Each structure stands twice: as C-alpha cells, then as structure tokens.
Simulated assay, not measured.
Amino acid sequence: MIRATRFLRAAALTGGEIVDRVVLDHGERHRRRTAMRGIGGTRFLLDLADATVLDDGDALVLENGRLVEVEAAPERLLEIRAPSEHALRRLIWHIGNRHIPAEIGPEAVWIAYDHVLAEMVRGLGGTAEEVERPFRPEGGAYSGHGHSHSHG
C-alpha cells in the first residue's frame, strides 16, 4: 500500500498534483498512523512520524509525490454565545473546567454537541444553538502549539 509520510500546510501548497481528497472530522484529522481511503478511491497508509492535527486545505504527500487534500468535515456542534464579553469569558471558564475541546472565536465558542452542556450554558445565561460546521478546537496548553490551524 502506498504511504503518506509527510504533509504540507495549506499555506505552503505551491502546486503538485492533487489526486484525491479525504473528508475527516476533528478526531480523524488528529492521527499518526491509519489506513485511509480518499473519496475518489485512493487507498493509502497515513504514516507520519508524530501525531499531527491536520486542517482544512492541508495536503498529505504520497510516496510518489502526488497529493491528497484534507477537507474538514462538518460536525454536530453547539455554538455558544453570551450577552456580554464578560459573560462569554465566564462560560469559557466553565467549559474549560470540564476539560472538553473548544474552538474559541471573538464572539462565540463551539464545542461538540452535548445536551447536558447546552443546559448548563443556558442556566448560566448564555445561548447554545446546534450548528453543523467543521470543528477546529484549541490545541491545548501542553500540546506544543496554540490553535490547531496555526502550527506547522
């Protein structure tokens, strides 16, 4: 089976032949080694040196030099908002206290759908609406990088 042993960040793509595309949710985009199949049928082994968070638009480099584009799959999420900046910060603290992945934007936070957390947010004065979109949570304080699509 052909292998993909390295990747290119979207910003570094300057050409190359894209032969297929893989559509992956957040968990599937954080891998080191796994068998994959592109939507066009290309089968390959992802075989990276380290577990890596791939982002939308990145490309996996096959041994023959061809590229497989990575597309972030839409996921069922909660979009959390609050009536003020202070209230949003408070909600972010409560979410972080539960150690769940979160994507933090300037006016909203996104987490994986969870009806219990939705009720908690509403009980604290925020809104929690179900949305479907790609999920790009923060990388974490101990992961060696910040936001998952700013490293590379």
Rank of each mutant, 00 (worst) to 15 (best):
R21A: 09
W93A: 14
A112K: 11
A118Y: 03
H115T: 08
A49P: 05
G40L: 12
E63C: 08
G125V: 00
D20K: 08
I18P: 08
L8I: 11
Y142A: 13
A118M: 00
H30L: 11
D20L: 05
D55T: 11
G16Y: 07
T34R: 15
I39D: 13
D20T: 00
E138H: 14
I95N: 07
R76T: 09
V19A: 11
L54I: 04
A11T: 03
R33S: 10
A128L: 02
A59I: 01
L60W: 02
D50S: 14
M36A: 10
A49Q: 13
E71N: 07
R6A: 10
L48E: 04
D20G: 15
G57D: 03
E103A: 15
A128T: 02
T14S: 15
A128R: 02
A72K: 08
P83L: 09
R3K: 15
V53G: 06
E103V: 02
G16Q: 06
R76C: 11
A35S: 10
E130H: 09
L13D: 01
R33K: 14
M120Q: 07
N97M: 14
E85P: 13
G41P: 09
H30R: 15
V61W: 03
G126H: 00
I92L: 15
V23L: 12
H94E: 15
R66C: 13
V131H: 08
A10Q: 12
R81A: 12
M36T: 00
I80L: 14
P137R: 09
A73N: 05
R29K: 08
E17K: 15
D25W: 05
L88N: 02
I95R: 05
D114Y: 03
R136T: 07
L62Q: 03
D25R: 06
S148I: 12
R76S: 14
W93V: 11
R3M: 11
I18L: 06
L46R: 06
H30M: 10
H145L: 13
G40H: 08
I80P: 01
L8A: 06
H115P: 15
S84H: 05
E129I: 06
G146H: 04
R33W: 06
V116E: 14
T52F: 11
I104A: 14
G144E: 04
G15P: 07
R32W: 04
P134S: 06
R43W: 04
E71T: 12
A82I: 06
L24C: 02
L46S: 02
L54H: 04
M36Y: 01
L48C: 12
H86M: 12
F135I: 05
